[in-house]
């Protein structure tokens, strides 16, 4: 147990000291939030609603970044540099190692959510009820699971270059098409139809529902769980195949 705690602590420190994380998961979302709610006139009628809506979008954008990019690239690095192999001769089991990594990611996500929510309050004086803050935060935290699973899948790639290239594309595509940068109503119809089936849109939609005084739709939960299981099964399958050699 002590080892697991120490491992979680170490993993958390490593992410916090990672410039990738600080840039993509904290600086960029806050900068975007500032730009699209303060500087650029988006011509939205209900400004307050937009401030809330976009705060949720940017928080999810942040969580997606740390799940897909930070975690995925990290896992590939650890393998190519011989660390994963070295860990196998220590008494710490692979399972504990993985759990510690996930716990560290959760700690990081809680931190990101709090920082970006705070930025919303400071920049635009966003005001939600306590229940809405809590619920949207928890929803985003739980909804990060399929993205973490996707990060693990990316983590099975052989080279850091490939992993960072592909995760970058996936990250941006999921963010834009899921309506994180601008509401999907602006996108063409076919894109909108595709978006409904993406994990990013479904995570976003749940949060947007919460801040509008409703609850996430069952469909959102279903799609997110579906992606979670899909990515978990895929990455387990790929890892099995790699180990067989």
């Amino acid at each position: 147990m002590y080892a697991m705690w120490m491992q979680t602590k170490a993993e958390t420190l490593k992410v916090l000291r990672n410039p990738y994380y600080v840039f993509w998961s904290l600086a960029m979302p806050i900068l975007f939030y500032f730009l699209f709610t303060k500087i650029i006139n988006t011509g939205v009628d209900d400004k307050q609603q937009w401030h809330k809506h976009y705060l949720m979008s940017m928080t999810i954008f942040s969580i997606m970044g740390s799940s897909i990019m930070t975690l995925g690239i990290r896992l590939v690095q650890e393998r190519t540099e011989g660390w994963s192999r070295f860990m196998r001769i220590t008494p710490l089991s692979e399972y504990s190692y993985f759990i510690a990594k996930m716990m560290a990611q959760t700690v990081i996500h809680i931190l990101s959510i709090m920082v970006i929510f705070a930025a919303g309050i400071i920049i635009n004086g966003v005001s939600l009820s306590f229940q809405e803050w809590l619920l949207s935060g928890l929803w985003i935290l739980a909804g990060s699971l399929p993205f973490l699973a996707l990060g693990t899948l990316i983590g099975t790639m052989k080279r850091v270059d490939t992993a960072s290239g592909i995760s970058n594309i996936l990250y941006m595509a999921l963010a834009i098409m899921g309506g994180m940068w601008m509401p999907i109503e602006i996108l063409p119809r076919t894109m909108q139809a595709i978006a409904k089936w993406l994990p990013s849109y479904n995570l976003g939609n749940g949060a947007w529902e919460i801040i509008s005084g409703r609850y996430p739709e069952w469909f959102n939960v279903l799609i997110l769980s579906g992606y979670f299981f899909l990515f978990v099964i895929l990455s387990k399958y790929v890892r099995k195949k790699q180990e067989a050699i």
Binding site: A10, L13, K14, N18, E81, G82, W83, R85, F86, I89
Partner: peptide, 13 residues
């Protein structure tokens, strides 16, 4: 305990 070839150090710690 072991010291293997081609193992770099854990970074950022």
């Amino acid at each position: 305990g072991a010291m293997l070839q081609e193992v770099s150090v854990i970074d950022r710690l």
